Amino acid sequence: MSRTAVVTGAARGIGAAVAARLATDGYAVALVDLDAGAAQAAAEQIVAAGGRARGFGADVADEQAVARVVEEITAELGAPTVLVNNAGIIRDNLLFRMSVEDWDAVMGVHLRGAFLMSRACQGAMREAGWGRIVNLSSTSALGNRGQANYSAAKAGLQGLTKTLAIELGRFGVTVNAIAPGFIATDMVRATAERMGVGFEEFCAGAAEQIPVGRVGQPEDVAAVASFLAGEGSGYVSGQVIYVAGGPKA
């Protein structure tokens, strides 16, 4: 049976890797991103590799945009029964320098976005009697200097995950979270540049602090998302899995 998966923030990095992996797993994949062109470009790469995918543009923090994009996905690919809430931004700063706008922007994309997308997709999952929601948290949920907004949003996602697992479990829907540690993405590259450190040097320094001796790749996260989105994870719900090369929680 063909199922439709939705991945937000899917144009690059972790989101693109998750979308590609789910397509390999046999899902029709909707790649949702604020940058519709980049989402479609990533989808075309999946199609070229033999998968079924399409890019969609939407701001996940906008209630009307979310309703519209879920309708479009349903019409073009089928009703979504897998949702990966990956969309995110960073607006790092120390508390006394952090603006209300930066707080609201991060909360809006990460937490409000996951809420709106989950609410919009859960109806199809309940109707199907089967569904998977995977939320992307972070090791920053445990606290990280300069990330009061990001850390609070990611911790909030863990609470949302556990609550939705309780509410939706009786309908055959599992809800879990992945909390990546250091993953080599464009977002991390931008952080290194902002700090005036070369990307390779930045990664090497991080790897020294990670028990497995290397930094993570987007595909490491995608592998866990693949499991949580599949049939074999039906008795796993309300969990936070740290994909960080060592113990974190």
Score class of each variant (00 low, 15 high):
I133M: 00
G238P: 07
G88V: 02
V60G: 01
G156P: 11
F199W: 00
A177R: 02
F96N: 05
G143A: 12
V32F: 15
P211M: 07
E231Q: 00
R112V: 12
R132C: 07
G55P: 11
L34Q: 04
R126S: 00
R52H: 15
Y242N: 03
S226V: 11
L22W: 14
L31C: 11
D35Y: 07
Q64L: 10
A192D: 00
D59C: 04
G216M: 08
R91W: 10
P211G: 11
E76W: 09
G213A: 04
V134K: 14
D25E: 08
V175Y: 01
G238E: 03
S233C: 02
A16M: 09
V66L: 13
G246V: 14
R145M: 03
A225T: 04
S233N: 15
S2D: 12
R112A: 00
A249Q: 14
E193Y: 11
A53C: 07
I166C: 03
L94E: 06
K162F: 06
G196T: 01
L94A: 14
I183W: 05
P180S: 03
V6H: 06
I178H: 11
M187F: 08
V70R: 13
T174G: 01
V100S: 04
S118W: 10
A206Y: 15
V134T: 15
I183D: 03
T4V: 01
V6M: 08
L160Q: 04
A222F: 10
F199H: 11
N93W: 02
I73M: 04
G159E: 05
D104P: 12
G129P: 14
R91D: 08
I133G: 08
E201I: 11
F115E: 08
L164Y: 04
I241C: 12
G230N: 12
T174V: 07
I89R: 10
G55M: 03
I178C: 01
A49W: 14
L228Y: 03
V84H: 05
E72V: 10
G15T: 07
W130D: 09
I241L: 10
L157E: 12
P218I: 06
E127D: 14
E71A: 10
V18L: 07
D33V: 03
D220G: 02
E193A: 15
L94V: 15
V84A: 04
V224I: 04
T174K: 04
Y27C: 12
F199S: 04
K248N: 13
A67P: 10
E167P: 08
G129Q: 13
I183F: 11
G15W: 14
L142P: 07
V47S: 05
Q40Y: 13
V212N: 12
G230S: 00
V29D: 03
A42M: 11
V32H: 13
G50E: 05
M1S: 06
I90C: 08
V173S: 13
L94T: 09
P211T: 11
S226R: 14
A192M: 06
A17C: 08
S233H: 05
V82C: 05
M98C: 01
G9F: 14
Q239I: 06
V60N: 02
N149M: 02
A41P: 00
V29E: 11
A48T: 03
R97T: 15
A75T: 05
G198H: 03
L31M: 05
A41E: 08
L168E: 06
I89E: 06
A53T: 02
G108S: 08
Q64S: 11
A114H: 08
Y242Q: 00
I241D: 09
E231Y: 05
